[in-house]
């Protein structure tokens, strides 16, 4: 083998001043670069399309199953043999589903109002005011947050039971639980408030505004994205809560939320009969939530990215 073949195809320049050897790669030809670019983009499109299929497939299947008329659990074909609204009709008229839906909606509405008020109050106080115990409060919340939430379940259940807020009273009970500890979730909105210049507050206070007025008339109007984000999160959370909701309702079907009810359907003995109904229920839950989310996506992104960066 000739030795010359082993020499790589680069120009080597010895830079005397810096005392180093630099490699200069030959400039690729423009035309091949464009072709390369095209190939890369093509590959990316292929990956994105494949991903879209994987990401959407479960939902498409879910919707298809919900319209399936013929009986049976999971079947070995994708497109139903007969389309119809039987499943929707059944769950809306002959099961407790409308009740569960109403329960969840009530919880979500109350939760979104109360939790937003609490979270924003805490965030404002921690971001804008300096007082004794502020650091202590923040540190305690950090430490408390490291305990797994379910640890407290039994004690919480007893507390609620003594207040009469389990089983029949599960709805107010759940609202109470969700809101009581929501003050601990102040990170994101505090981070947002921190970015609003303090000179705004100060100039308003010089003009004679109280802290309360500053909060209401200056900070709030500037914080629309974070307010919407907080409301959105508080509204969406109750729809997916299974653990506390099932524990507090304690087998009382009238007090279930949708997650508990539908979970029971999939894990009942009559899985064959209820599978398509579960799909129908899932669709009914998913449609409004998804629509709302996609509408307010912009604010969600703002909250998530802001929160991720600030931690």
């Amino acid at each position: 083998m000739a030795k010359e073949n082993l020499i790589p195809e680069v120009d080597i320049v010895i830079d005397q001043e810096a005392g180093v050897i630099r490699e200069i790669k030959p400039e690729p030809k423009l035309r091949s670069k464009k072709a390369h670019e095209k190939r890369v983009n093509g590959a990316i499109y292929a990956i994105l399309i494949a991903m879209s299929v994987i990401w959407l497939l479960p939902f498409i299947l879910l919707v298809l199953q919900s319209f399936r008329v013929e009986y049976g659990g999971q079947v070995a074909y994708v497109i139903p043999k007969q389309f119809g609204l039987d499943n929707f009709k059944f769950i809306l008229t002959e099961t407790n589903f409308p009740r569960w839906y109403g329960n969840t909606l009530i919880i979500a509405l109350f939760n979104s109002v109360l939790q937003t008020v609490i979270v924003l109050s805490v965030s404002y106080a921690l971001s804008r005011m300096r007082f004794r115990g502020r650091k202590l409060f923040m540190k305690s919340v950090l430490v408390l947050g490291m305990f797994p939430g379910f640890l407290t379940m039994i004690a919480l259940y007893t507390l609620l039971k003594n207040l009469g807020l389990t089983q029949e009273g599960a709805i107010p009970g759940l609202i109470l639980i969700y809101c009581a500890s929501s003050g601990m979730g102040y990170y994101i909105s505090k981070g947002f408030f921190d970015t609003i210049p303090k000179s705004l507050d100060e100039s308003a206070r010089i003009d004679g505004a109280t802290r309360f007025q500053v909060f209401l008339k200056i900070i709030m109007p500037l914080s629309k994205p974070i307010v919407i984000y907080t409301i959105l999160m508080a509204f969406m959370a109750p729809w997916g809560d299974y653990v506390f909701a099932s524990y507090v309702a304690f087998g009382k079907s009238d007090s279930y939320n949708v997650a508990v009810g539908l979970y029971d359907w999939v894990n009942t003995n009559d899985f064959q009969g209820y599978f398509t109904r579960f799909c129908a229920g899932g669709v009914l839950v998913a449609i409004p939530i998804t629509a709302l989310f996609l509408m307010l996506q912009k604010y969600y992104v703002e909250g998530v990215t802001g929160g991720a960066v600030k931690g």
């Binding site: 991903m51 959407l56 299947l61 879910l62 997916g240 997650a259 539908l262 839950v285 989310f293 996609l294």
Partner: peptide, 15 residues
Amino acid sequence: LVMTIAIPQFVSLLY
């Protein structure tokens, strides 16, 4: 992609 965030997890994950 964001659809998976929007749809409640108990629906998508159970399915």
